[in-house]
Amino acid sequence: MIYLDYNASTPVDPRVASLVQEASRAYANPSSTQHGAGQQAAELVEHARQRLATAVHRTPREIVFTAGASEAAAIGIIGAMLGDPYRRNAVIAATEHKAIIQAAEAGARLGGGEVRVASVGHSGLLDLSHLNELVDDSVSVVAVMAANNETGVMGPVAQASVIARNRGALFFSDVTQLLGKGDIVDVSTHADLMVCSSHKLYGPKGAGALIASRHTQKALFPVFGGGGQEFGLRGGTSNVPALAGFGLAAELATHSLPATMRRLTALRDQLWDGLRDLGAVEINGADAPRVCNTLNVRIVGADAEAVMASLPDVAVSSGSACQSAVPTPSHVLLAMGRSTTAAGESLRLSVGTPTTDADIRASIAKLFAAALRVRELTGDLERRLDDA
């Protein structure tokens, strides 16, 4: 199997897996710091907090651990929308991850507010003029993701954050697809709230984080307060092994970032160069800055689901893994002005650190054959319908 779906999930780095196994022996509750066993577990969690804080250029006190980025988004966005009785509205980009969209919709229902959607251009870049029109004094939070999970298009976070802050709104950015694949200093400098996930950067599943200053944390309504863990914002016993692995994964990804970016960019571009020979192919988001590992390609005349069915030994996707079970066109591509047909002919290909040059060459050949086969079958069907 050739794996080209790293935006959906990544394999656990062997060094991380080793630490997770070791941390599993720390069976005590990290909140039970009255005894040595609890203190040992707590130390693992705090070490992970320090590692992640360093990776995202923040302090440990700004790291709120969660079970994943989706949960972190709910805590941050709903918490912001319920935290100020005079600001119950949210503004989000049209191409945000479904978790952000649903969190904003839930916050609006709970608080009696509304969700306003800022449009994007054909390239997937946010329309800053439209965003500026939508943000007013009734808005509590503005959400613009750092890198899109389907197209890799990178958002204008610095400009968007200025618009939010000029109106007194919090600025939220999902850095899940950027952390470990791009420099997040600019995002970290401008965002009031960020979220990320362990399993997108070679860490274990079941760990994520909301990143916010102490001042911002205090402005959030505690949606998942529980027993007071994670500074009162996310109750429940910490998943010590997963968090320990998350911290190390973030550290490793940050240390190797420049080399990783160069290598993944070269592999992504090699993949595109090979697919161009198919003819009638295009990159969704070609005219926008994109994260180094992501290629979203439309193969004209070849339905994406049919192409994937003809690729049993190459793992790719037709959109976000979080909505892969729902047979509907990508909301991201539709927001970019693609037709339903064009969206249905688009594949997301994402490379990762284990990807090799041989993987790319083999994938090109297999994708080439599958696309040509689907085009041939589609042509035969259309001819039969015309004859009928």
Rank of each mutant, 00 (worst) to 15 (best):
M1E: 10
S9Q: 11
D13V: 13
D13R: 14
S18F: 09
V20W: 04
V20K: 10
R25Q: 13
Y27M: 13
S31C: 06
Q34K: 11
A37Q: 14
G38S: 09
V45W: 03
H47D: 03
A53S: 13
T59L: 14
R61P: 08
E62L: 04
I63G: 00
V64P: 07
A67D: 09
G68Y: 00
I75T: 05
I77M: 05
G83N: 08
G83P: 09
Y86T: 12
Y86D: 15
I92W: 02
A93S: 15
A93H: 08
T95N: 11
T95S: 13
H97D: 09
A99G: 07
Q102N: 11
A108P: 00
L110Q: 06
G112A: 11
V117L: 12
S123Y: 04
L125P: 02
D127R: 01
D127K: 00
S129K: 09
V142T: 08
A143F: 13
N148S: 07
V153L: 00
G155Y: 04
Q159A: 15
Q159W: 07
A160F: 03
V162T: 13
V162Y: 01
I163P: 08
A164E: 02
R165K: 14
N166Q: 13
N166W: 00
S173R: 07
D174H: 08
T176G: 15
G182K: 01
D183Q: 11
I184S: 03
A191D: 02
V195Q: 12
C196G: 07
L201A: 03
G203Q: 08
G203V: 03
G208W: 01
G208L: 01
A209D: 00
A209H: 03
L210C: 10
I211W: 04
I211P: 04
S213K: 04
T216S: 08
F224S: 15
Q229L: 08
F231G: 00
G232E: 11
G236F: 03
T237V: 14
N239G: 06
P241I: 04
L243Q: 04
G247C: 05
S256V: 03
P258S: 06
A259P: 06
R263A: 04
Q270Y: 07
Q270V: 05
W272K: 07
G274Y: 12
G274N: 14
R276P: 06
L278V: 10
A280M: 05
G285T: 02
A286Q: 03
A286C: 01
D287Y: 00
P289L: 00
R290L: 00
V291F: 02
V291G: 06
C292L: 00
N296P: 06
V297Y: 03
V307R: 07
P312K: 12
V314A: 08
V314F: 13
S317T: 13
S318D: 06
G319D: 02
A325W: 05
L334K: 14
A335K: 10
G337H: 09
T340Q: 12
G344D: 12
G344W: 02
E345A: 12
S350G: 12
G352F: 08
A358Q: 14
R361H: 13
A362K: 02
S363Q: 07
L367Q: 11
L372S: 09
L377V: 10
L377D: 12
L381S: 12
L381K: 10
R384M: 13
L385R: 13
L385G: 02
